[in-house]
Nucleic acid binder design. Structure first.
Length: 303
DNA sequence: GAACGTATTTCGCTAATTAC
DNA sequence: GTAATTAGCGAAATACGTTC
């Protein structure tokens, strides 16, 4: 009988895992079953949907059009069921879970650190895993539940995600205290362009950024002679050299022993958002997590 | 109707086989 | 060689009949 009475939800979980993994062995590992058990479930799914669903390839399985058509509805159904099973009221003190958040290095420091300190006071049993999102397939990881949340710029965020603005940021200029370019606790545009700069390029190898765009507008250039992949390297570089850097203002909270001043050119700031998948949109624990992060920067709960 | 025993079904395992 | 499928098995769950 091909109706809901004969449908085993575990078969949908198996189908979901098979669609993600395209491999019976890996799907079985994910479901904590043996490979033949999942092969058997696949056979039942084939009967249920009257379609082969997957055809064998040299390495793993290739989904049929029918299987691909089922992919999104199945994920949506499993997500809804998962939400149904979440407690309406939960006690943060007893909550035992791991939140997985992707962010760049300076967001881990400026957003992640204060968030974790607050979180641990409210939920001592919770674990947090920060992942550097560069070179990650963010959307797939969010869809599969390998990530809960990303901290990102709106321009780089996939459109299909839900998002919320955390804060607007502006840039400041930093260099070592006693730097020869400093005069009256400020720096002139000429001095700014005269000295060598260090720039952070997460993918590596870039020597131009928003500051160069701002300088170009006023017909000037600067000399970026050092490119690094992490903001965390900047303090030690700047302390022991005459390099200048332009960095997000929030980052300088952790750089008290450096000289911080307004850049002599109007560098556009940016907006930082958190983004999440529809899968977790209505999950009360995830909503609580998002509010906790939001409250780090904004006083009022609105979600 | 409750309790019990037996038959049947379902599920997941290991091992062997088959397909790519 | 790797990965999927099949066969056969045991354990657990479920269905059903019998007894009180």
């Amino acid at each position: 009988m091909n109706d809901i009475r004969s449908l085993d939800l575990n078969l949908l979980k198996a189908l979901d895992a098979l669609l993600d993994e395209r491999n019976v062995t890996r799907a079985a590992a994910r479901l904590a079953l043996t490979q033949p058990a999942v092969s058997n479930m696949l056979n039942k799914l084939r009967t249920k949907f009257n379609d082969p669903l997957f055809v064998r390839a040299q390495h793993g399985l290739i989904p049929t059009d029918r299987a691909l058509a089922l992919e999104k509805p199945v994920k949506r159904i499993l997500c809804s069921i998962n939400d149904l099973l979440q407690p309406i009221d939960f006690d943060p003190k007893k909550l035992q879970t791991t939140f997985k958040i992707a962010a760049n290095d300076h967001d881990m420091q400026t957003i992640g650190l204060p968030f974790v300190l607050t979180l641990k006071k409210q939920s001592p049993l919770v674990k947090v895993s920060f992942l550097s999102f560069h070179q990650l397939d963010i959307h797939t990881m969010l869809e599969r539940g390998d990530l809960d949340l990303i901290l990102i710029d709106p321009v780089n965020s996939p459109e299909s995600l839900h998002s919320r603005i955390l804060y607007n940021e502006r840039y400041v200029c930093i260099m070592r205290k006693g730097h020869p370019a400093i005069k009256n606790d400020a720096i002139t545009l000429d001095k700014f362009c005269e000295y060598e700069h260090v720039l952070v390029s997460y993918m590596g190898g870039m020597f131009e950024g928003v500051t160069d765009e701002a300088l170009a507008k006023v017909g000037r250039t600067r000399n970026v002679s050092l490119s690094v992949t992490s903001f965390l390297l900047l303090p030690s570089i700047l302390k022991h050299s005459d390099f200048i850097a332009v960095v997000p203002k929030r980052l300088t909270c952790h750089m008290k022993d450096l000289a911080i001043m307004e850049p002599p050119v109007n560098v556009s700031g940016y907006t930082k958002i958190m983004a999440w998948h529809d899968r977790t949109h209505n999950n009360p624990i995830q909503q609580w997590l998002r509010n906790l992060i939001y409250l780090q920067f904004n006083g009022e709960k609105t979600e």
